[in-house]
């Protein structure tokens, strides 16, 4: 595990603080505790801030071990964004340029190694109206290739109102991040069944 330069870590701390202040995010752990073991967190996707907000909601000791997966076409589009992304430990994945030998799933698994946890957004993109879309199959392949890892559902509430799609000025409303009970890919479970179950696991955290 390599350590980032001090200014990158400092920027990360500042960003996490700002994100917490701005989104008023409170983290809730339900049937799941913060742990440094390897995990895949999967969440609904509503705003560019999502990756940063979830990462900030984690306890500080865990942050260096958790890497939010973010879209390279957005976060690598300028040097400032690229720097910001590196400060919150983001793993930039190209959504557009997918090749057989550089399949995003393999890239993620490779970069995870046996130390890092990742945060993924299986919807693939942000929804316009805050409603959850169907999950893409990436989560299934991750679960299949790493059956030893806990898959933790995460529900992000209200961040889409803090910074909706297409806006650049945030409004400081109060949002919340709920971490739910881990799931695994069952033996012989079909792709559709699993994706539906994962979708339900996130959705069930909505109604408390």
């Amino acid at each position: 595990m390599q350590t980032a330069p001090w200014h990158v870590r400092l920027t990360g701390l500042v960003l996490a603080f700002a994100a917490k202040l701005l989104s008023g995010a409170s983290a809730r752990w339900r049937h799941c505790q913060p742990d440094s073991c390897q995990r895949i967190y999967f969440a609904n996707h509503t705003s560019h801030l999502d990756a940063l907000v979830i990462w900030s909601a984690l306890p500080r000791a865990m942050r260096s071990l958790v890497r939010p997966v973010a879209a390279a076409d957005y976060w690598a589009s300028s040097s400032i964004k690229r720097y910001a992304a590196s400060s919150f430990n983001a793993m930039l994945i190209d959504r557009k340029d997918v090749k057989v030998h550089r399949n995003p799933i393999n890239v993620m698994l490779e970069q995870m190694g046996d130390t890092y946890s990742i945060i993924v957004f299986p919807e693939g993109g942000r929804s316009l109206d805050g409603q959850m879309q169907k999950f893409k199959s990436g989560l299934y392949h991750l679960g299949k290739k790493r059956p030893d890892i806990e898959l933790v559902p995460v529900y992000i509430d209200n961040v889409n109102r803090v910074l909706p799609r297409g806006e650049f000025l945030p409004v400081p409303l109060l949002s919340s991040i709920t971490f739910g009970e881990p799931i695994w890919l069952e033996n012989g479970e079909s792709k559709n069944d699993f994706l539906n179950r994962a979708h339900q696991a996130v959705l069930s955290l909505k109604d408390r």
């Binding site: 008023g24 209200n158 109102r161 909706p164 806006e167 000025l169 945030p170 409004v171 400081p172 409303l173 109060l174």
Partner: peptide, 26 residues
């Protein structure tokens, strides 16, 4: 006041079209 307003608006449903107005309010 800022925090109380945050609680109030969080609880009140707003639409996408209100976003810029809310920015000026806050």
């Amino acid at each position: 006041s800022f925090w109380a307003l945050r609680e109030f608006i969080t609880m009140t449903p707003t639409r996408r079209g209100d976003h810029r107005a809310l920015f000026w309010v806050f």
